[in-house]
Design a protein around this nucleic acid. Sequence first.
DNA 1: GATAAATGTGTAACCGGTTCCAGATAAAGG
DNA 2: CCTTTATCTGGAACCGGTTACACATTTATC
Lengths: 327, 327
Amino acid sequence: MAVTIRDVAKAAGVSAATVSRVINNSGYAHEDTRKAVLDAIQKLNYKPNEVARSLYTQRSKLIGLILPDITNPFFPALARGVEDWLREEGYRLIIGNSDEQLEQEMDYLDTFIQHNVVGIIASINEAHSDMLKDLKIPVVMLDRTIESLPAVYADQLEGGKLAAEKILELGSKEVTVIRGPVEVRPVYQRFVSSFQLLKQAGIKINVLDSELTFEGASESVKTLFDKYPNTDGILACNDIVAVAVMNEAERKGRSVPEDVQIIGFDDISISELVNPGLSTIRQPAYEMGARAAEILIKKVNQEVLTDIHHKLPVQFIERGSTRKVGD
Amino acid sequence: MAVTIRDVAKAAGVSAATVSRVINNSGYAHEDTRKAVLDAIQKLNYKPNEVARSLYTQRSKLIGLILPDITNPFFPALARGVEDWLREEGYRLIIGNSDEQLEQEMDYLDTFIQHNVVGIIASINEAHSDMLKDLKIPVVMLDRTIESLPAVYADQLEGGKLAAEKILELGSKEVTVIRGPVEVRPVYQRFVSSFQLLKQAGIKINVLDSELTFEGASESVKTLFDKYPNTDGILACNDIVAVAVMNEAERKGRSVPEDVQIIGFDDISISELVNPGLSTIRQPAYEMGARAAEILIKKVNQEVLTDIHHKLPVQFIERGSTRKVGD
DNA sequence: GATAAATGTGTAACCGGTTCCAGATAAAGG
DNA sequence: CCTTTATCTGGAACCGGTTACACATTTATC
């Protein structure tokens, strides 16, 4: 039905092999022949069938991307970074949301392999990493890390520390740290790092657990001010939770940042738009995605990588949910 | 390298054809043979190569999804609806962000075709629709509509009207309607619908243009209260813009909802978490995505569809950015 | 028990590309 | 001018599945 390479060959009065050579700029092709072929391609509006090509060459222009949940605004930012970079390079993306479920991750991984993807970018937890370790195609970890694989991630330890330092610096005396799911490594790391620093400072620390989702967050946070009525500083495990906390604070009649200061993590787009603006630790999500794509392409092209782990810097973004120095 | 159907055949002592028949439950296969094949598959951990399969059958388990920008939280919700439904059915997604650019849309479309996707779900504007009209594979429009194609979308006219009615009912006397890009059909429709109703009501109406993105929104909205100082009600073209407006109001010292009421559109996840909560017109995004997927699968399976256009209901979600009746 | 119908299985062609190889022609070298 | 080398091109095999078809073997029918 669709126009094939043999149609083009016929139209140009050559063989399929020649057309293939022209298309791929491989082997010899006389200038006149080349022109004839190109004309025929143009005229017939021929587009090579990637499936056929991929079957023989065992490599496609597809790349697999596994993310926990694009409903969490941090991940679309990553995804766009990946996609924009890859598009430039002519690659396309098969995306799968895993909801952190091993089963779904494996499912998508199978799909990727079955479709001859040429590389994979994955944001999955170390505990689920076995399946990734001995794939024959390049894998780059994104946001999460696995010992033996290249990874792009933000500096969680620094981020956690920074958040803790800032909230102390800005005057909080009893800090509640909201801890996300411990399985989610980066989230746990930032927690530990904050916790340690606060502990060293010798102040009162409370810990509260929370989901990372919009629905989970507002629920988890409901007990916060009952459990820890004297808390005057909150470190949230991500910005979604932080916004939920701001809300809860309001509901309980505590003003932000006068009564409680709040610092989030991620710096997703809404963090700037909420009221007051959310002070947070910024992860350069888009850049992380782009960087992961860049590295993956390099590996696909067999380039040797000197550095395997790419730790991108985080940054404290000061907005209205924390006090100004000297307040 | 990977295990092929002929490896399985050898292991089971049969021919490749037989293995294929067993896998696909097509044609005859003796119970004993079937068992032997299944065992071999199990033992070798054989996974059929989708690429080879797709080359012959001309149909894959891939579906193409074109969205404007997953960075806008409305679209991930759609995407998850689509994905979750399709996963159940064994289909996988190639996703592309178009940024509403014709070139990128065409680019992804080509990719889809070249990869033998079996169907396409697209959220693109009617102006760019020519390329979709005579594809040989099923296409379902999502959020946007095109005359001749099946579509799933929310009732924009009702939504626009509803927003206008509510803001009047709740007492605003001079309403500013923020209009998004006119090329984005649903956004324009809701604007027109709101505008008409307000006009009929005979009140003062102002119109302000805005981008739909986070960055664009806060910028566009900066002049609002200077241009229209007496505005006491705002209909935003989407929730992102609405949140930006809430912020701007705060910055200008106008309290929401006492001085200005604000109604958004979409009901994205943060709308519930901002402060005050954003009253808005809810589009059932996730359901829309799922529905589109459902319809696409039906078309892929050659089922006849009675209804082509699926208009899903919208709903007014009352939160803190509007006053209560009787205030 | 002979014939017809239903089962069971393998061979080979096919999907649409790519590439190896061999043969033909053109350019270069002595 | 003849050999060597470089350039150009097509035939055929291949990638890993699916399926049309032929043939063999059971099972059903009378």
